[in-house]
């Protein structure tokens, strides 16, 4: 494992690169946090200053309802939460069995279905936004959270299939073979053997799908821009940016919707990363 020993200069060079990398990645985020806890007047007067006191009023203003003098982000967060959780449930339910079959069972046409899964994963996109919008508008669903749920499930099914198939492929097949030898039926095999060992992969996929739905902006804009009471958190923050909302409040809102995803992502980071990059090792 020792490989080629790094020289002292190489090690110092690496320390510099790592420091710069952290500054590049986290600098803007840290800046956002710092501004969010400074009073607005102070920010405009002295843009380069550091916070002298910890002023959390911007968070409260962002989250409170319009009726209480806030900007209603609390309600937008609830809208987002509902849509994102619904997306996770539906998307996982549709994909978990298919991903297992694509990874494990030898049925005729398996290569074709696997090809379709990859192609669909690689080819998402704006191109399909036009027909989706038109169809849902025809069905009268474009100004509802239900319509948004439908497009989010549509957008996440390919990713969920792809990720869960990767997880199933990485599981040792020997356990399932042993269970079949012991006379397990397919149903028993799935419920008692496969799902328990697949839980980390399913949870990681669920979290990733949740993040996609939670962060989504384009369809929310396309469907709901006229319906303020239905805005999702990202749409809410982006729309308020066009009004005369103090920048500290916008940043506080941005931080508030970021913290939950960053935290849950880091809890499941190892699994999500392995699900995404599998296949790249070859």
């Amino acid at each position: 494992m020792s490989g080629v020993r790094p020289t002292r200069a190489a090690r110092a060079g690496r320390a510099v690169v790592v420091a710069l990398a952290l500054l590049w990645s986290l600098g803007p985020v840290a800046y956002g946090v710092v501004l969010a806890v400074r009073p607005y007047g102070e920010v405009t007067r002295d843009p380069l200053g550091l916070p002298t006191t910890l002023d959390l009023s911007a968070f409260a203003t962002a989250l409170r309802d319009e009726a209480d003098g806030g900007f209603g982000l609390g309600r937008f967060v609830l809208n987002s939460l509902g849509v994102a959780l619904g997306t996770v449930l539906l998307s996982i339910a549709v994909c978990v069995l298919g991903a297992y079959a694509a990874a494990r069972l030898r049925y005729r046409g398996r290569a074709v279905t696997n090809g379709i899964i990859l192609a669909v994963y690689l080819f998402p996109g704006i191109v399909l936004a036009v027909p989706k919008f038109v169809v849902l508008a025809r069905l009268g669903l474009t100004s509802s959270l239900a319509g948004l749920l439908v497009v989010y499930v549509a957008a996440t099914v390919p990713v969920a299939l792809y990720m869960m198939r990767n997880f199933f492929l990485a599981l040792p097949a020997s356990v399932e073979e042993a269970a079949i030898m012991d006379g397990c039926t397919l149903g028993q095999l799935l419920v008692r053997v496969v799902l328990p060992i697949a839980v980390p992969g399913v949870v990681a996929t669920a979290i990733y799908v949740f993040m996609i739905a939670w962060n989504e902006y384009f369809y929310a804009l396309l469907f709901l821009v006229q319906r303020r009471e239905l805005w999702t958190a990202p749409l809410g923050i982006a729309q308020l940016g066009d009004f005369q909302v103090p920048v500290t409040v916008l940043l506080a809102g941005s931080i508030a919707v970021t913290v939950p995803v960053v935290v849950i992502f880091f809890l499941a980071q190892r699994y999500i990363v392995s699900g995404l990059v599998q296949g790249a090792e070859r």
């Binding site: 990398a21 952290l22 990645s25 986290l26 803007p28 985020v29 800046y31 956002g32 501004l35 993040m211 939670w214 962060n215 902006y217 958190a233 990202p234 749409l235 923050i237 982006a238 940016g241 920048v247 916008l250 940043l251 809102g253 941005s254 931080i255 919707v257 970021t258 995803v261 960053v262 992502f265 880091f266 980071q269």
Partner: peptide
């Protein structure tokens, strides 16, 4: 893990921060 933060950040939050910057 910390280097992944920009990738995980909601794009709206990231854009708000950059616009302010």
């Amino acid at each position: 893990a910390l280097l992944l933060v920009p990738y995980v950040l909601p794009v709206v939050a990231a854009a708000t921060i950059w616009k302010t910057l």
